[in-house]
């Protein structure tokens, strides 16, 4: 075991892994994290705790991860390259490990201009850091863990033992390069990969075939990303505006049909779309898990954590495996 995390153990056991996502609040109040952690607990093997996602200030990933951990939910702390230089990154990684965290996902991070796609003020005038990029951050974590060395070469008396993750946008531009992008992260030391949301199964399978041809599925655990659709509008938005996400028209049509079936009843339209959205999600989970080389799913029910229980049960992924304490 590299880290001994629950996520690592599930993956090592050969069973499909399930991760979910918990977005920390824009507040100093821990109760929302506690509430969400208890909603997700038992229905996933670990939950990503986002690091100021959409470039908006929230409870830090490490702090929220510790709060979730105290509730019995294993966290995957996230670290963006946007906000810290390598000194701050490594200091935070040592601190996170000292607090008991065992999974870390390395990501570039949304640009500071994003500000929740313009819905919030955010901090578009902030200075970004990008001292290192995702690939380099993965390499830093690996060097710390496996060689007991800091990036600069100084020794660590006790190395932080992280299960190292990175993200992958299989359907992003330039599409020919995406399998190599994955290869670089795997070569740098990524133990697991969580992908951008997948709706276009054919496209994803074609990219996975290229990844398999590079032997990457044997060297890392690819968890296919599933973003739970809640409304037809959300699917349309993701198709047109979210980089690397293509939504087939058939899925948008299905959600539209669900919406129209309710006539003018807005409450019912919402309910019917949610039911259809969960149905689509469960189908996508099966299709992603049937794709050769995939080791699990990363399910994001954005601001809808209560949906996870039903989805995981309907997908036949409940109960989650448990292991005796190491």
């Amino acid at each position: 075991m590299k880290s001994g995390s629950n996520l690592e153990r599930v993956i090592a056991s050969g069973q499909p892994a399930v991760t979910a996502e918990l977005g920390p609040p824009m507040s100093a109040d821990p109760h929302e994290v506690i509430k969400k952690a208890n909603i997700l607990k038992g229905y996933c093997d670990a939950a990503n705790i986002t690091d100021c996602q959409t470039a908006v200030v929230r409870i830090s990933s490490i702090a929220a991860a510790v709060i979730a951990f105290q509730q019995g939910l294993e966290p995957v702390m996230q670290m963006t390259c946007r906000d810290r230089n390598r000194i701050a990154m490594q200091a935070d990684l040592l601190g996170a490990a000292a607090l008991g965290l065992r999974n870390c996902l390395c990501i570039a991070g949304d640009h500071q201009k994003f500000s929740a796609a313009g819905r919030l003020k955010g901090h578009p005038g902030a200075k970004n850091v990008y001292d290192v990029d995702t690939c380099q951050l993965v390499g830093i974590l690996k060097k710390m863990r496996d060689e007991g060395l800091q990036e600069g070469g100084d020794k660590l008396e006790v190395a932080p033992k992280f299960f190292i993750g990175a993200s992958w946008t299989p359907m992003g531009d330039p599409i020919d390069f995406r399998p190599y992008n994955l290869m670089k992260k795997v070569n740098a030391g990524a133990d697991f990969i969580q992908t951008q949301g997948i709706y276009d199964i054919e496209g994803f399978r074609s990219q996975m075939e290229k990844a398999r041809n590079l032997g990457l599925h044997e060297r890392t655990a690819v968890l296919g990303g599933i973003i739970v659709p809640r409304t037809a509008m959300m699917l349309k938005y993701m198709d047109s505006s979210v980089a690397g996400v293509n939504v087939p028209k058939a899925l948008i049509d299905r959600m539209n049909k669900a919406k129209e079936a309710a006539g003018d009843d807005k409450k019912k339209a919402k309910e019917l779309q949610e039911v259809e959205g969960i149905k689509i999600t469960v189908e996508l989970i099966h299709q992603v898990l049937e794709t050769p080389g995939v080791k699990g799913v990363h399910i994001q029910a954005i601001e809808w954590e209560t949906a996870i229980e039903g989805i995981v049960k309907a997908a036949g992924l409940y109960p989650r495996p448990t292991f005796p304490e190491a």
């Binding site: 570039a108 949304d110 990029d133 690939c135 330039p174 390069f177 190599y180 670089k184 951008q196 505006s241």
Partner: peptide, 10 residues
Amino acid sequence: LMNGPCGGTN
């Protein structure tokens, strides 16, 4: 970034 595009290329 030094090692390839991020996920934001559209």
